[in-house]
C-alpha cells in the first residue's frame, strides 16, 4: 500500500524542519558533509516524500513507485532524513552517515541502500539517469513519474544540457526536474563562479515547461508539482529559488557553508534556532 500522502502545509513544514535538524546533526557527527545545499533542498524533499510521490516504505523497489534521483548527490543527507522519517530505515541509522560500514555513504550508493535509485556524486550525471528512467516508463506506458534534483553549480556541467536537449526531444512529460538555485558552490557564488542567467530562457529554449517558485514556500512547491503533473508533451523544470543554509541565520546565503561541517556548538545553536521556528 502506498504511503499516505498529505497536503497539510504545517505537517510538510514540520518534516522539512526535521530534515534540516537531522542533516545538521548527521553532518556534525560525521565531521564532514554539505550542510548548505542540504538545507536549501529540505522543503522540496519534504514535499516530494510526504506530499507528492507515490511510494511504499515497506516495498522500496515497488515497480509502480515514483522515482527520485538526487543528482546533486552531496545533499543526500536531506533525502536520507526524509527516507528515515517515512520509515524506510530507523532514524537512529541516520547518525551513521559517512561511517565505515554504514549504508549511508557520503554520496548515494544504490547497492548499499535499496531505497536509493542510483549512484550520484559526480555532478551532472543524475539527470541523464532520470531521463532514461522516464523513457523506460514511457515505453511501458507506466503511470509512475520521475523526479530529479539538480544544483545550480551542477548546471555548469555539459551533461546537464545534453540531458535537457534529449528530454525535450523525447517529450518525457513524466520527468520533473527541480533546480535548487541557492547561488552557492564551493569556490563562491554561482553568479560569479560561472553565471547561469537567464535560467528560464535557457530551459524554455530546450523545450521544457518552466515554473519559477520560491523553493521555501510549501504552497508554491506543491502547486508546481501539480502543474508539472498536468503538463503534457514536455518535461517540466521547477526553478526553485532557494537560500543556501536556509533556516539557520549564520549559514544563510553564505557559500562557505557549502562543504563544511558545523562544530558541535554550532550544530547545537543551529538546531535550537530551527526548533524554535
Amino acid at each position: 500500500m502506498a504511503y499516505p500522502l498529505t497536503r497539510d502545509i504545517d505537517v510538510l513544514k514540520k518534516h522539512a524542519n526535521q530534515i534540516r535538524i537531522h542533516s545538521l546533526k548527521m553532518i556534525a557527527k560525521a565531521k564532514s558533509g554539505h550542510p548548505g545545499g542540504s538545507l536549501s533542498i529540505a522543503d522540496i524533499c519534504s514535499a516530494l516524500m510526504f506530499g507528492v510521490m507515490r511510494h511504499d516504505p515497506r516495498t522500496p523497489r515497488w515497480a509502480d513507485r515514483d522515482r527520485f534521483i538526487m543528482s546533486k548527490g552531496h545533499c543526500v543527507p536531506a533525502w536520507y532524513s526524509a527516507l528515515a522519517q517515512a520509515g524506510y530505515f530507523p532514524e537512529e541509522e541516520l547518525m551513521t552517515l559517512r561511517e565505515f560500514g554504514s549504508r549511508l555513504q557520503g554520496h548515494p550508493d544504490c547497492a548499499k541502500l535499496d531505497c536509493i535509485e542510483a549512484a550520484s556524486g559526480s555532478l551532472g550525471q543524475g539527470m541523464s539517469i532520470a531521463l532514461g528512467m522516464a523513457m523506460a516508463g514511457k515505453m511501458d506506458n507506466a503511470d509512475w513519474r520521475v523526479y530529479c534534483a539538480i544544483g545550480d553549480g551542477e548546471s555548469q556541467e555539459g551533461q546537464i544540457w545534453e540531458a535537457a536537449l534529449a528530454a525535450g526531444k523525447f517529450g518525457v512529460d513524466n520527468l520533473t526536474v527541480v533546480l535548487d538555485n541557492n547561488n552557492g558552490q564551493i569556490d563562491g557564488y554561482v553568479n560569479e563562479v560561472m553565471p547561469l542567467d537567464p535560467i528560464d530562457a535557457k530551459w524554455r529554449s530546450f523545450n521544457w515547461h518552466v515554473i519559477a517558485i520560491n523553493g521555501h514556500d510549501m504552497e508554491q512547491i506543491l502547486a508546481a508539482f501539480d502543474e508539472a503533473k498536468q503538463t503534457k508533451g514536455r518535461p517540466t523544470l521547477i526553478w526553485a529559488k532557494t537560500i543556501k543554509g536556509q533556516g539557520v541565520s549564520f549559514m544563510a546565503n553564505n557559500y562557505t557553508w557549502h562543504g563544511k561541517a558545523p562544530t558541535a556548538e554550532q550544530c547545537e545553536a543551529a538546531v535550537k534556532e530551527l526548533s524554535a521556528a
Partner: peptide, 10 residues
C-alpha cells in the same frame, strides 16, 4: 555521456 547515463536509467 547523456546516452550512457540514460542507458543506466533504463
Amino acid at each position: 555521456a547523456n546516452m550512457l547515463g540514460a542507458g543506466a536509467g533504463m
